[in-house]
Design a protein around this nucleic acid. Structure first.
Lengths: 218, 218
DNA sequence: TAAAATATTTAAGTATACTTAAAAATTAAT
DNA sequence: ATTAATTTTTAAGTATACTTAAATATTTTA
């Protein structure tokens, strides 16, 4: 299957799992940087290949076959991220960019070699779960976004759900890192801001950031 | 530039350097598994981009710009081979197949990271030289093919110039490996066969193999 | 050196993955 | 509940990288 198709099913999968669960063509188009028309076209094409269910004006739904393909690509993406992060001194943003390309040109054999070398990790450096060779995610997700965290409690950062360079630069400057500990000192409900202390820093984060920083109870 | 273009200039580069130096469209087409017509088309297109010089019915000649592009791709290919060979237990044939895909999706940044990790190797596991970051090959090639080697002399294997699985399987079974030592016991000139002793084996190789096994004097 | 074989080029056509522009349907706002 | 705004779809068109078939040029060989 082509890169375009792999990226399309991956975008649906990611949208379905994370975001506000909008998998209509326009939303997928926005993620992929293509026109709405192109997304509608592709949706019809993939429906004919039994990768997704398409009904006019409805959400796109991956079939079992489509989900399997998406998970295979996601697995390769996250394995590459884990591998490059371990081997080389590269930022989370950079490893994401490389993985975005390499994921489509990686045999199942090589993916297994990488997984094996890393000791079959269950999470990538963003904290996202890595599907196993059968395309199954075997970990439970108990984490919540920082925006939903409770005042006074201490948490461990479990995921940094972003591909944005500016966000990661901010993280790097403020000890916001996968597995680090933080305490929520205050939730400013009406302003949708969250005050945390992490290491020696006190930070007040707005919703843009607290929605993509995921944490687990300590 | 597209994968098709990168593969096209790479094929010209490789043909120009190794083989019987035939870079006419038909020969490139054969290497790439495309039709002659497609190769002629592409040649015209690349001439317009100043990647090669095209004159009807003549050999295709890479320009400086085209050569640079080819060397950049070749560098990435050989770095991936060296890296995968070091990291994972994979055959020469397998690492070639992976590198063939990964080479087009690798940033200069990542290539440099790989090179640095490996200590800036000058040769890949086939014995082919790895161009440096400036696209220069800094090693001299003093090796000759086994078909040209002298009776009675001892040599070191410097290159295994093939991507063929059967050839590498044969090599694996007979201690034919980069850097191993062999002695040419007899050249059967009229039959174009070469008898060698390597390790505990005596082998009589025909021209198909002696033309792709390169050796250096001891 | 002329005929036969081979290679290259031209021409016409295809599939993929897009585009823009307009029409149709849905969703949001008053 | 209409109207307005937004989305989705359809339609027509484009670039890339191929294909096959036929025409033309080159190379081989007898």
């Amino acid at each position: 299957m082509s890169v375009a198709i792999e990226n399309f099913v991956k975008a649906i999968y990611n949208n379905d799992n994370h975001d506000i669960k909008n998998t209509k063509p326009g939303n997928i188009a926005k993620k992929l940087g293509i026109s709405n028309a192109a997304a509608t076209d592709m949706a019809k094409k993939l429906a004919a290949k039994d990768l997704l269910n398409y009904e006019k004006y409805q959400e796109l739904q991956l079939t079992e076959k489509g989900t399997k393909m998406a998970l295979n690509v996601v697995r390769k993406h996250r394995l590459w991220e884990a591998f490059l992060f371990k081997m080389f001194d590269m930022s989370l943003h950079d490893i994401h960019r490389e993985a975005e390309l390499l994921e489509h040109q990686t045999s199942d054999l090589l993916a297994d070699k990488i997984s094996s070398y890393l000791g079959h990790p269950k999470f990538d450096p963003h904290g996202d779960p890595i599907p196993n060779a059968d395309g199954k995610i075997t970990t439970e997700d108990t984490s919540i976004s920082l925006s939903e965290a409770k005042e006074g409690k201490t948490y461990i950062i479990s995921r940094l759900m972003s591909d944005d360079k500016e966000f990661f630069d901010f993280c790097a400057q403020n000890e916001i890192k996968y597995r680090n500990t933080l305490t929520v000192s205050k939730q400013f409900i009406s302003n949708k801001m969250t005050q945390i202390s992490i290491g020696s820093n006190t930070l007040v984060l707005n919703e843009d950031f607290t929605k993509i920083i995921y944490v687990d109870e300590n």
